[in-house]
């Protein structure tokens, strides 16, 4: 089945709530107890599930005020979703299921200058670690207001999915929210536009350089059930696989690296079928 159709289906499943057309409100039902695999803001009027990154930050900002059993329970519950999605699919979620990844694929189809964007100070090697550690974990955990609450730093100042899905869609539905727009909203809009332009030039720029969720799933690429394997005997060293890789990976050395978004372009284009998608047993270890 074509990847595009799975991405469309996944986007519709992530955003399957149509009740907002009747009452202008977000979904508040049973499914909101579950985290979605992809980056999809839970404040989006159509969203059916919780955003794992948003919930993780909510947990960190509430550390000082939650009763210990709720805190431990919530942490274990959220952790189980990260582990389950990571161990089962890893970054297949980025390549095949994430609604924001799909949006980036669509944007890249627009004819424009296409090149690999090199960030200064070799930032592409550590930028997303910085976003995860600083904006998702440490700042929400450590910077608190007078009530003991922290701020959802990544959601509030960076997340482009939230700006589109929650910000603009809710503003369209509830004009009374307009009076709350201010400097932060314009900053987020600026970041959104900047990221969209970079995604227009460089395929999946956000996934490669910014997304903390992709980074977390990437940690499971070597231990997940679905992994890529490489048969050196079949390879004719044409390197066509490296040319189609959106993450510019060196194959086979980095075939299961945390940067691989599992688009499977390499597997499809390989003329000698040296790259294979394999289902590993939960305890199996691969060579690559």
């Amino acid at each position: 089945m074509k990847r595009k159709w799975i991405q469309i289906t996944s986007t519709l499943v992530h955003n399957g709530y149509l009740g907002f057309l009747l009452n202008n409100n977000t979904y508040t039902g049973f499914l909101k107890s579950f985290c979605a695999p992809g980056l999809n803001c839970f404040s989006c009027p159509t969203s059916l599930f919780a955003c794992p990154l948003g919930i993780l930050q909510n947990l960190f900002v509430s550390v000082r005020i939650l009763p210990w059993q709720i805190l431990i329970g919530s942490f274990l519950y959220v952790l189980s979703f990260f582990l389950f999605f990571g161990l089962l699919l890893g970054r297949f979620i980025c390549g095949w299921l994430c609604p924001f990844g799909f949006l980036q694929d669509l944007i890249y189809k627009i004819p424009f200058l296409k090149t690999y964007v090199n960030l200064p100070f070799r930032a592409q090697s550590y930028l997303k670690f910085l976003f995860l550690l600083l904006f998702v974990i440490f700042l929400p955990l450590l910077v608190i207001n007078e009530l003991g609450y922290g701020i959802l730093w990544f959601c509030k100042y960076i997340c482009p999915a939230g700006t589109i899905e929650a910000g603009y869609l809710n503003l369209l539905l509830q004009s009374s929210l307009f009076y709350l727009t201010g400097l932060v909203f314009f900053l987020k809009t600026f970041i959104l536009i900047l990221l969209l332009i970079l995604c227009l030039i460089d395929l999946r720029f956000f996934c490669k350089n910014v997304c903390p969720l992709g980074l977390i799933y990437g940690l499971f690429n070597k231990v997940g059930i679905l992994r890529l394997s490489f048969d050196l005997n079949n390879c004719n060293s044409c390197k066509v696989c490296e040319k189609v890789c959106p993450s510019n990976l060196s194959i086979p050395d980095e075939i299961n690296s945390l940067e691989c978004i599992r688009c499977l372009n390499c597997l499809k284009i390989c003329p000698t079928k040296a790259i294979k998608l394999e289902i590993y047993k939960p305890y199996e270890v691969s060579n690559h």
């Binding site: 107890s33 919930i55 329970g73 274990l76 519950y77 959601c155 939230g162 929650a166 809009t189």
Partner: peptide, 24 residues
């Protein structure tokens, strides 16, 4: 997580309109 009520916390937070997410 379910036994300790973690799912209730997740549902409650995910059902609330988040001004931070909207940038408002």
């Amino acid at each position: 997580g379910i036994m300790l009520g973690g799912n209730v916390f997740i549902k409650e937070r995910a059902s609330t309109l988040c001004l931070s997410c909207m940038g408002l």
